[in-house]
Structure formats: structure tokens, C-alpha cells
Design a protein around this nucleic acid. Structure first.
Lengths: 156, 156
DNA sequence: ACATCTATCTTTAGTCT
DNA sequence: TAGACTAAAGATAGATG
């Protein structure tokens, strides 16, 4: 009587879709939970609801945040294979500091680099950035500084 | 012959753990994929490997990034229930701009706020921040500005 | 709408190659 | 180390209350 051949296509019927979503979400979360226990690992799932804009996560928001941060760090490292992220950052900062000492003058380029360094240390932006990302960030900070300066000028 | 009662505890044997991890990870990803199709939603899974530091994600890094960003936005909204995030940001920026025009002088407080606004617009930091997070960010930016200024002074 | 049931489908632990 | 196999365990579609 209970026929089942799940066609893997979008479920048009709202009631059926909602029921399936609820059951399967529960199943997935159970499986993810089991995997973390059986294998002693971290894992998380983020699932958007079809019925409201909320995204459900497993485990709690704290655990999810941790693994997301861990993922973001490592994925960025992977993207910049050509240079070790650690030596890259260390070298960049050391170079910026040297330049500051040598040139002995106000220099926006170094201001930007130092700002980036502070943000990296603080964790506001990922601890590792590849060259392209760093360049984007530099351009953004430079733009900000210019805007702030022009606004200040405008008011003087 | 094939006896199975899965005890839900850590699998001590390395070989068995690896085999189970591989099988179950595949299963979870399949289930998540099916859920997204059946219900027409976004979902992702992040799974740390027990054998190297890499975190595997489903779907690709691009899709994962999107849903993470969506999650981070909404979760932060939820945390600052007391005030709508949109009106909060809009109000804060408008106020800062008003102050700039009225006081007609260089003012670090506004510089900080404008910098935050730029970062918010750019997506470098989450689009929504609650009061505590905004305060932390303000303190950080202020500290950065002071450090940069003192370094510039030191060199003049 | 939700809870329970259960026949059937799907996953997977243990085993072998 | 990685597939393939298979029977038991587990998940769930559709039905019913």
C-alpha cells in the first residue's frame, strides 16, 4: 500500500514538501551528529527553510561559528598555494615596518598595510589572505582613508 | 554473518573509523543534495576530516560561502532583537553625517563611524552588527588610527 | 496542521577480494 | 588502500487518526 519511488525532483505540493523537509532535515542532522561522534570530528550543517528566511544550523550557533571560522582559514590557505600564508604575512608586515622606518615620512601605502595587519591580528578579517584578497583590502582601506580625509577637508 | 548494532561511540580502530567516515560523509552529502533539490532550498555541510586538517564542504566553496554569509547575516539580526538592524545602521550613519556637517572639525569618532560604514557596504564585515559588536569594532578602528598616527608622528 | 505507523526504500558494517 | 557485496539497520513516503 505504501508505494515509494522517490523521484529526485522538486516537490511541487506544499504540504508534501513541508513534511519531507521536516523529516529529512531531522535525518540529516542525526547523521551529522552521529558522524561527529563516531569519528571524533567537527562538522556542521546549514539548512535554509523553504518557508521562512531563517537558516537552521547544527550544532548550535557557537559550534557552527567555530567550524565556519576554521573552514574559512584553511580554504583561504588552500587558495594561495604558491606561498605559505605565514611567511607571506610575516614578510609583508616586516617589509612595511622597515619602509616606515627608512622613509621617515607620512605614507599612505604603509598606513594601509599597518591597518591590515591590525585587522588580521584582531580576527575581524581572516588570518590568512592571498595576494588578490590583500590587494582588494588595500584598495578598500585606501578608498576609505581618502573619503574620510576629503570629508574632513570639506568641513575645515 | 554480517552482524551490526551500531554503538554510537567513537570508533577507536583507525581503519574502521576511516572506512566509516568515508561512507557516512558520502551519505550525508547525498542527503543534503537531495534535500536542496526536493525542497528547492540552499543548504551546506562542513565536515572536518579525522585524518588531515582539511574541512570538506558541500556544495563547492562558492555555494558554501553564499549560505554562510546568509546565515551570518540572519543570525546576527536575531541576536540584536531590540532594534531593527536596518534602521539601526541607517540611523547611525545619518547621525554621523549630521554631526560631521554640524561640528565642522576633524573628529575621530566620526572617522571611525564612517570607516565602519564603508566596511559594512563592502561586505568585509557582516552587514548587520549589534551594539556590542559595533562598539568592539569602533574601539579597534580607533586603536588602529591612533597607532598609525603615532607611527607617522614618530617619523616626522 | 501534527503524530504515529509501517511497508518499502536506502544506508552502511562487516567481510571479502 | 580501495572497491564490491550483502544482510541488517535505519530512514522515510504515504497513509491513517
Amino acid at each position: 500500500m505504501t508505494r515509494k519511488k522517490v523521484k529526485h525532483v522538486y516537490i511541487a505540493d506544499v504540504t508534501a514538501r513541508k513534511a519531507t523537509f521536516k523529516k529529512r532535515k531531522k535525518g540529516i542532522i542525526k547523521k551529522v551528529n552521529e558522524l561527529t561522534i563516531l569519528c571524533g570530528i567537527q562538522a556542521c550543517a546549514l539548512i535554509a527553510s523553504p518557508f521562512d528566511s531563517k537558516i537552521e544550523v547544527w550544532p548550535d550557533s557557537e559550534g557552527t561559528r567555530h567550524i565556519i571560522e576554521r573552514y574559512q582559514s584553511t580554504s583561504i590557505i588552500d587558495r594561495s598555494k604558491n606561498v605559505s600564508q605565514e611567511s607571506f604575512i610575516v614578510h609583508r608586515v616586516a617589509k612595511a615596518q622597515d619602509q616606515v622606518k627608512k622613509k621617515h615620512r607620512e605614507n599612505r601605502e604603509k598606513e594601509v598595510t599597518l591597518t591590515i595587519f591590525q585587522y588580521l591580528k584582531s580576527g575581524i578579517i581572516p588570518q590568512q589572505l592571498n595576494f588578490e584578497e590583500l590587494k582588494d583590502l588595500e584598495r578598500l582601506i585606501e578608498k576609505n582613508i581618502k573619503q574620510v580625509e576629503s570629508r574632513i577637508e570639506e568641513l575645515s
